[in-house]
Design a protein around this nucleic acid. Structure first.
Lengths: 217, 217
DNA sequence: CCGCCATGTGTACAACTGTACTAAAGAATG
DNA sequence: CATTCTTTAGTACAGTTGTACACATGGCGG
């Protein structure tokens, strides 16, 4: 009866369900059972596909951070003039990064995890690096760092306390930070595509996780 | 035998222990039992002094946010020239806000809570408002908001990824944001001391919490 | 002095957790 | 077809949790 015997997307679905659940109830409120229910898989699938809760969280946040970074890079690469870059940055602050509540919650949950557990820190590290690299297509490294921080702060504050005149204020702040700053008149070289999330640092994180049964013998 | 029958600071000690524990293991890793052990009180004291976990967290974070805001305001009030203000802001980013890991973790945990649960949001709201008001002693409201956001972003990024040249970079960013900006040459009026954390919004939060026993007959 | 009652204490309980393990079902290979 | 191995499924278990509640205690008003 509706026994889904072959289900190739199971892992994916579990990860997506995990992100949904974290967004809704936080890491604290996330359990194997709830994720299983949401992804419509039996509890046993959790421990089969993931070695433990930490691995599940790690994979879920890796996907989330990669997704956000990809979008960020795409937006930045599409811009071809400094004005277009400014426009893109403002746009990202206004809706992308923390535009929806889910993204804000997930980001903060990840930061919280990373702040306390070193094994999650490479996620935030890579995320920050990718956005800085993207900025460095147009600005020198120092300005890139400053801009990155401004985006972070404005995004968070705007997410908590949105106002009608936000766009204007954000745009003005970006302008001030970039004044006299742009060193590269326009994109010099495409972002190095080899900079990706370094999953190889956490090799245990890849595929089927179940311990080989201590095969009696 | 060492039965501390009178212990007026119990509540205080529990709250402090809670903050320590959250800093060490996060909200997720915080339990009545662990807090009780750390504060050296029996488990029963938890439910006697606080109606539940949420109230405990709320009180702990209220104390934390108040403490940070107080220090922030004091620093800002002590400055008497624009240069001194700039210096103070840089100094705060460099060590105060997220200077130690504990403060970073606690801040992020609070943000995470506030992002998902409305009942914690007035804490972050009041916190933001107080720091903006402090800035508004010297700058117009828009600049105050921009500066507040910059401080937020720089603090977080610096906490995750400290560098040797941070001070210079931070100072430069603050300069750029304040260029042509300071409208008030110097502090016009003291910060309104009546702006405090609005605990009265959460009246259940004050004192002894134990439900009156449904006293028979 | 007594007796009351806010305060402090220990324990029980039901709910929920992560994970290990047995067993089966079907795909893959010969 | 027979066998092997990956994947799926169900369940059991030991541990931890928040909270309720019955009981002890001692300071204080009378």
């Amino acid at each position: 009866m509706a026994k889904r015997r072959v289900d190739p997307d199971r892992r994916d679905r579990i990860i997506e369900a995990t992100l949904d659940l974290i967004a809704a109830e936080g890491v604290a409120g996330t359990s194997h059972r709830k994720v299983a229910a949401l992804a419509d898989v039996p509890l046993g699938s959790m421990t089969y596909h993931f070695a433990g809760m930490d691995e599940l969280l790690h994979e879920a946040f890796t996907r989330f951070a990669t997704r956000i970074s990809d979008r960020f890079e795409r937006r930045m690469n599409e811009a071809s003039t400094i004005d277009a870059v400014k426009e893109a940055v403002v746009e990202m602050i206004m809706q992308d990064t923390y535009g929806d509540r889910d993204a804000l919650v997930l980001t903060l949950e990840l930061y919280t995890l990373a702040a306390r557990q070193a094994k999650f820190r490479h996620l935030t590290h890579d995320w920050m690096m990718r956005s800085r690299r993207a900025f460095e297509r147009y600005f020198d490294p120092d300005v890139a760092r400053q801009l990155d921080a401004l985006v972070e702060g404005l995004s968070i504050h705007r997410a908590f306390e949105p106002r009608d005149d936000d766009r204007e204020l954000v745009s003005n702040a970006v302008d001030k930070l970039l004044r006299e700053a742009p060193l590269h008149p326009v994109a010099p070289s495409p972002v190095d595509a080899s900079i990706t999330f370094s999953d190889e640092l956490h090799p245990a994180v890849s595929m089927p996780a179940r311990r080989l049964r201590t095969s009696g013998g």
